[in-house]
Design a protein around this nucleic acid. Sequence first.
DNA 1: TCCCACACGAGAGTGAAGAATCACTATCAT
DNA 2: ATGATAGTGATTCTTCACTCTCGTGTGGGA
Lengths: 129, 129
Amino acid sequence: MITRNTRQKSAIRDAFEEAGRPLSTGEVLDLAQNKVGGLGIATVYRNVKSLVDEGWLATVELPGEPPRYEISGKDHHHHFQCESCGRVFELHGCLPGLEKLAASGFTVKRHELVLYGGCPECSVKRRAN
Amino acid sequence: MITRNTRQKSAIRDAFEEAGRPLSTGEVLDLAQNKVGGLGIATVYRNVKSLVDEGWLATVELPGEPPRYEISGKDHHHHFQCESCGRVFELHGCLPGLEKLAASGFTVKRHELVLYGGCPECSVKRRAN
DNA sequence: TCCCACACGAGAGTGAAGAATCACTATCAT
DNA sequence: ATGATAGTGATTCTTCACTCTCGTGTGGGA
């Protein structure tokens, strides 16, 4: 568990706060390297794990993708992945009645929903081509 | 692409038809070995890939899990994963209006939904403890 | 029935995510 | 300001899912 307030850990926290969306370890490395030049991937893994352990980050698992991480404590929500750039965004809200889809005998405790399509940035680009 | 009708390929197809739910490569190996004793994992991978290529199987991706496979050609549906035994089951139907969750500027093309909880078998076991 | 290309099984190899190691560096209580 | 020690960065190691290799066996056309 990392407890000191290092430049690296700050840069990693800043990356999440400025991105405002779930980030993969590779994205964290790219973004945080803008602030701390020689930042290594091992430090990203260490600090992300540490931030998850202390509850500041939550893990976001999407189908067929390595885990992403987002700032924790937010209301129940789901995610959107752009099929063009691969970036993941937050959605707000949810739909009631999802547990009705389960057949009798099944107990539903939680659910995950992911929408796929084009993000605003990629949709604009495609229209311009 | 495997074109011959071998005992191994039949056993693998049978496993999917008898299970009636998405199977991982490990589950396919277990189930098909009941019919063809010395079945090897490489043969499972070869045949599953072949069955996907010829359109008989479809790939099912769940968050944080290696891919599973199911018989293709079914109506739009989603999946349920038991948090106790890890097995995946089919759900029937869907909910309208999911694309409403996306903010303006996002184009929604498809979605994935996964419910988590207890399957009938595991729920009964737990109650019995 | 014969034959051989194709498929099989066992095990080694590969690639990627992430953890461990280690010499060096930076933080922070004193 | 100092120094104990936690953290860093480069690298190696581990793990796991999956693929390849190669010698053996078999499906199915002639």
